[in-house]
Simulated assay, not measured.
Amino acid sequence: MSKLVTKALALCILGLTVILPSLQAAKTNVLYKDQVAVIMYHHVDDDAKSGGTITTKLFEDQLTYLKSKGYQFITLRQFKDFMQGASVPHNAVLVTFDDGYESFYINAYPILKSMRIPAVNFVITNDLENPLASYIPSLSRDEIVEMTSDTNFIDAQCHTNNFHYKLPDGSPALIGRMVTNGKKETDEEYKQRVIGDTQACVAKLSELYPEPIDSYAYPFGYFDARAIDYVGQGGMKYAFTIVPEMATRDIDPMQIPRINAGNSMITPEVLHNSILRRIVAASNPSAEVPLAETLSQLGGKATVSGGAVTILYGSAQWQGKVNGAGLTNGTATVTLQKPLYTKNNKVLIGIKDLETVIGAQIVYNPTVQSYAVRQSPAVKK
């Protein structure tokens, strides 16, 4: 009996030596706080070859590596609560899939289930009528019911009902205008088409499980201001883009960014580094920044000659002076909140003033200790 007890204790100790380091890593290895890395996949398959396909091994390796680095995976419900003001674990990650392929059920779901990692799949609900008719087989109703009922961390949401195609003119069905018998649809017809398609997606998924169907992934990543409005009228409160940034509460919930993870070239280390490069500091470390150095990090250039300051960013050129309170590009003038000034032989500018000049939000990444322009979709509500 004593030998059995001793052996049992030894096994317990061995188990703790395996478990405790990973738990400790999750507690102490704080990479970022109060933001979420939403990562995006499409197809997990060991035979298919495409830019949106990865093997089951790579998929599992990515998730295992992220776990080892202290990332913590959250559910869609947790993500939505976060967007409404709730807290999330440090190093939070939300796993998403687009297109509703059956490979999610066959190859990805067993891995997710065994590792207890939540995920959401954005489904093209028109494919539910005949899942095997697609070029790539799609999820069936039974498979969705099984996954969502057997766990409390797998979700199915909308990738439109039947808008995952392009019109004859090349525009995506979500934002293009249909032409029937030579007649282009009116604005009202377009509006009703988008709202109706969204409502159809909600209705079909609502039959399968009881969670709210209020989240959407834009097909092909394309959308515009009207599409945002009408998708919202169709019942969506959250919509996901393909803009590669971190998700924070200050973004539009109908324009949520995602970081691509579903390419065969994205190794676990590459995915980890891709997330690190996009971490957003809670606030900029300084109200004023060195003009030339910061612009260089943003992809622009600033020069100072005899007190004259020239700023080049994109196609615009701005002129000003040290101790001057304004910058002009010939057709427009920006009045600075604080004049340009020199300190330690460097010209400094207010971060808010620089954002006004370049027309974009500037964020600080504490991991790489540099500034960057925060990417955003071309359209705004």
Rank of each mutant, 00 (worst) to 15 (best):
D250Y: 11
A247I: 03
K184E: 15
Y222L: 03
P137R: 06
I256Q: 03
G52C: 10
T56Q: 15
L174S: 02
F163R: 03
A308E: 15
G51K: 06
P212N: 08
K237E: 10
G15S: 13
V304E: 15
S264G: 09
D187F: 10
G262A: 06
N107F: 00
D99V: 06
K343E: 15
L348V: 04
S171P: 06
V36K: 03
Q192I: 02
I242L: 15
L16Y: 10
Q192E: 12
I195Y: 00
K80W: 00
D45H: 13
Q78D: 09
I106N: 12
S274M: 14
G52E: 14
Q35W: 04
L94I: 02
V347S: 05
T180F: 07
Q72I: 10
F163N: 09
H42A: 06
V38G: 11
I213F: 01
D81N: 13
T367L: 00
T28V: 12
V95Y: 11
T367M: 07
K7M: 14
Y218C: 02
L298S: 05
S68F: 01
N162I: 11
G330W: 08
L23H: 09
T17S: 14
G234E: 07
P212G: 06
L132M: 11
Y371R: 11
A37V: 01
P253F: 05
